[in-house]
Amino acid sequence: MGQVANGLRDMVRLEAVGLQYERAGRPGADALRDLSFEIPDGGFRWLLGPSGAGKSSLLRLLHLAVRPTRGQLQVFGQNMSHAKRGDLPDIRRRIGMVFQDFRLLPHLSAFDNVALPLRIARLPEDQIRADAMEMLRWVGLAKLVDSRPAELSGGEQQRVAIARAVVGRPSLLLADEPTGNLDDVQAERLMLLLREMNRLGATVVVATHNEALVARHPGRQLRLAHGRLVSDD
C-alpha cells in the first residue's frame, strides 16, 4: 500500500489514469485523461466540475464499474488495472455508492433494498434486520419500510439509496450528487452522516454541483474539467 507525506496509507491512488468508453465496438472520446492523485485512508474529497467534466466517470472507475483504459488505479492498495475479475466482488462490498439516479431495485421494498448489500455479503438474517431497520430509522423512513420505490418521492428514494450505501459500513464511500433530490434539511442531515462516516474512518468522495453545500462543509477539493484534473487542494 502506498504512503503519503503525512504517513497515512492511500485508500485510492491514480497514476496517469485514462478512460475511454467504447461506442459500437470502437473507441470513443476520452472520458478521463491522465489523472494522477491519491486519497489517504480516512480522507474526505469534494469532487467538483461542470457537467461532462468526468465526475461520474471517475466515481464509476473508483466503484470498479469500469476499468481504466490507461494508467494504474489502486484501491485498498490493490492494483485494479490488473486485478482478477473474481477478486473484484470482495472489494466492491467494501465500497458504498450513492447514485445520482438512486438505482434502487423497483420490485423490492425499501427494507429489502437497504438489506440487499448485507444479504449479498451473506450476513445472518437477525443482523440484517437490525442493521437495515437502524439505517432506515436514521434516514427517517421507518414508516415506509414496506414501500416500493415507485411509491416513494424522489427525496425518499434518495434516502433509501443512501441507507443502502452506508448499511454495510463501507471503507470507501462514493456519492454522486447525493443531495440533488433532497431539501436543505435533508441535505444537511446527509452531510452530517457523511462526515460522521468519515470521522469513523471511512474515506468519502462526494461529487456535487452544489457550491453552497461545499462552502458550508469545507474540505479538500478535486476539480475536473474536460476529463482532466485541474486542481487538487
Binding site: H63, P89, D90, R93, I95, L105, H107, L116
Partner: peptide, 10 residues
C-alpha cells in the same frame, strides 16, 4: 437489476 446487484458486490 443484475448490474446493480453486481455493483453491490454480488
Amino acid at each position: 437489476s443484475i448490474e446493480i446487484v453486481h455493483g453491490l458486490g454480488a
